[in-house]
């Protein structure tokens, strides 16, 4: 029914416009326009050189031994991360070299020696605001037996340099992003061998949330 009506409509229209009834011609013109439209769409689809298509076409691995990558050397005090990112090996800043009182065992020894107020003098500034309601304790992360190491919930020892393995127990999503590159940031260079900041470079492990503060500057309205 509808088809018939449509045909009648088309017929009437052609009559109105051209004044001649010729269905055969109409069909031809329809095909012609169809082909034109299809070729137009095909052309636009293949000729579009947007960023997205450029990105999709770029799958060749960059050679880190040529061009700009060659001239950039790794920053000082970095360690190889135990896990690979999508491009292979990468590095992170060493933490041990930044801790002023490392090694911890220089004070925390096996033999008992009592010093008055020692804990307050050395670690009195530490306030643990971490873990929400189930507030963390020192020994949740710091190893009881070997003070030079951190410890996971399962009891595996973690080196201070590879702290991401400790944080990653709970913050596994952030760890995944950090390895890939969506969390954290690189040290100075985008080119060359990948060297990123450690978790503790930005977060204070004892109270990791950024504190409320005044912004560094302000903007005036645009003219």
């Amino acid at each position: 029914m509808y088809l018939l009506r449509w045909k009648v409509f088309l017929k009437e229209r052609t009559v109105n416009r051209i004044g001649v009834v010729n269905l055969k011609n109409l069909k031809k013109t329809k095909y012609f326009f169809g082909i034109v439209i299809i070729t137009f769409f095909a052309f636009t689809a293949f000729s579009s050189e947007g960023v997205v298509s450029k990105i999709k076409n770029a799958n060749k691995k960059t050679d880190k031994s040529t061009g700009i990558h060659k001239s950039i050397s790794l920053p000082k005090n970095v360690v190889k991360v135990k896990e690979d990112y999508q491009g292979g090996v990468f590095y992170t800043k060493s933490r041990k070299s930044e801790i002023t009182r490392y090694k911890c065992s220089s004070c925390h020894k096996t033999q008992k020696k009592v010093m008055k107020n020692a804990a307050n003098i050395t670690h009195g500034d530490i306030q643990v605001v971490h873990g929400g309601k189930n507030k963390l304790e020192c020994n949740t992360c710091h190893s009881k037996n070997d003070r030079n190491f951190l410890v996971t919930a399962k009891g595996t020892k973690v080196d201070f340099d590879h702290v991401y393995n400790l944080c990653g127990q709970c913050h596994f999503r952030q760890k995944k992003d950090w390895i890939g590159g969506a969390h954290g940031k690189r040290i100075t260079y985008w080119a060359g061998e990948r060297a990123v900041k450690n978790c503790t470079a930005c977060h204070n492990p004892h109270s990791p949330l950024f504190k409320k503060r005044w912004p560094k500057t302000y903007s005036v309205p645009l003219k």
Binding site: V51, K54, I55, A58, N59, K60, K61, T62, I68, H69, S71, I72, Y85, Q86, G87, G88, G180, G181, A182, H183, G184, K185, R186, T188, Y189, W190, A191, G192, K197, C202, F210
Partner: peptide
């Protein structure tokens, strides 16, 4: 080969900068 000044200054790591044509870069991730 350096990252931009804003990326380097960002204290929260909200900014990612890199080469779009490198399939291993952070921005591609």
């Amino acid at each position: 080969g350096k990252v931009t000044a804003c990326v380097e200054a960002c204290p929260t790591g909200a900014r990612v900068f890199g080469n779009l044509l490198d399939p291993d870069s952070e921005i591609r991730f």
